[in-house]
């Protein structure tokens, strides 16, 4: 049962990164692909009706994580106190940047909103990547299952690391590049004209950087945490995941050359699913490894909630998520197709 919940929480987090990932990526590249105020408006319009719903996946995943593994939620949220609070502030600023821009028809106001939108999106992508890096690398848990990490110590991977060390900076940059490419792929799919051309050019170069960073980060992961190979030895079917990473990277190049924007976007989606899925597969059954004493690690067994809750939870969760997926399919189908500036609506 706890394995089910491990998979479900991981799925919700993956859904968040895939969906809100392109919103963030669009934010990062907005100044590169959109030169005029109208083009920026167009870029915002491409995510306007969906970004809030996408962000909800983070809240829902956080809720599910609290529900299924209360100790993990208590320990990690208090241990990652400072970076989490900064993520909250950045999420607030991002919302402000997206939603308030069109409220005032003034060039200064709009460039301010654009700046806030881009800066917060950029920092969020790095923070999210660094967060994953921290979880893979492990944190200095004590025997009660708690810890506290400063933002940085000496940038080394050791028994008392900071949030940022060379490894988590690397994963942060990887996430930034991944989501930038993902966002550019989304824009290439949703827009036309100059914005689309620039987005396509960006993904071409970005895909090379992404391939390079993928190799680098995999090597780094093997170096700092060789245990990630254990599950691959134990369950050979897991090798399908790295295969998928390679396939999606190749298909990104292939379909870009063919000019099939939708397939490129699906490829970067597949890449994100495979990378995060691989991380979850390698971590299982660990939720948060300890850099102090492996026995202090939080696992799905020592952090789980009561059995009754988990059983009942599966019922309401399945009902709720089916409804949610229904709304999303409806919403995305409704707003499918290219966005344009002629079709102005909204408040």
């Amino acid at each position: 049962m706890e394995t089910n919940w491990f998979v479900l929480v991981a799925l919700m987090l993956v859904a968040y990164v895939v969906l809100d990932g392109f919103d963030l990526g669009v934010g990062v590249i907005s100044p590169l692909v959109a030169r005029t105020s109208e083009e920026r408006q167009l870029v915002l319009r491409s995510i306007g009706p969906v970004w809030d719903g996408n962000e909800v996946w983070l809240l829902a995943a956080g809720g599910a994580l609290f529900f299924a593994f209360p100790l993990l939620y208590a320990s990690s949220f208090s241990g990652f106190y400072l970076p989490l609070m900064m993520v909250l502030w950045l999420l607030m600023l991002r919302g402000v940047g997206i939603e308030l821009r069109s409220h005032v028809d003034n060039a200064l106001w709009q460039s301010f909103c654009d700046f806030v939108f881009t800066l917060s999106s950029l920092l969020l992508t790095i923070f999210l990547g660094a967060a994953i890096g921290n979880v893979i690398r492990g944190v200095p848990l004590n025997k009660d299952g708690y810890f506290f990490e400063a933002l940085w110590t000496n940038f080394r991977v050791g028994p008392s690391p900071g949030i940022l060390d060379w490894y988590t900076v690397l994963t942060g940059v990887l996430a930034m590049i991944t989501l930038t490419v993902h966002g550019a792929n989304y824009l290439a799919m949703k827009t036309e004209g100059d914005v689309q051309l620039r987005a396509r050019r960006l993904t071409q170069k970005g895909s090379w950087a992404l391939s390079l960073m993928t190799v680098l980060s995999l090597l780094a992961t093997l170096y700092i945490r060789p245990q990630v190979m254990d599950n691959f030895k134990l369950r050979a079917w897991g090798w399908i995941i790295p295969l998928l990473v390679v396939v999606t990277l190749i298909s990104m190049f292939y379909f870009r050359a063919k000019g099939n924007d939708r397939a490129v976007f699906l490829s970067s989606t597949g890449y994100i699913v495979a990378m995060l899925g691989g991380a979850a597969f390698a971590m299982y059954p660990y939720l948060l490894p300890a850099s102090t004493d492996p026995a202090y690690s939080l696992t799905i067994f020592n952090a789980k909630t009561g059995d009754y809750s988990m059983r009942v939870g599966l019922v309401w969760w399945l009902v709720g998520i089916t409804l949610a997926i229904g709304y999303f399919v409806f919403l995305y189908r409704f707003f499918r197709g290219k966005v344009s500036l002629e079709d102005k609506e909204g408040y």
Partner: peptide, 15 residues
């Protein structure tokens, strides 16, 4: 709290 996420937040934000 988790039910609020899956039952209310998705409904509200999508619509």
């Amino acid at each position: 709290l988790a039910m609020e996420g899956v039952f209310a937040f998705f409904l509200e934000s999508s619509f």
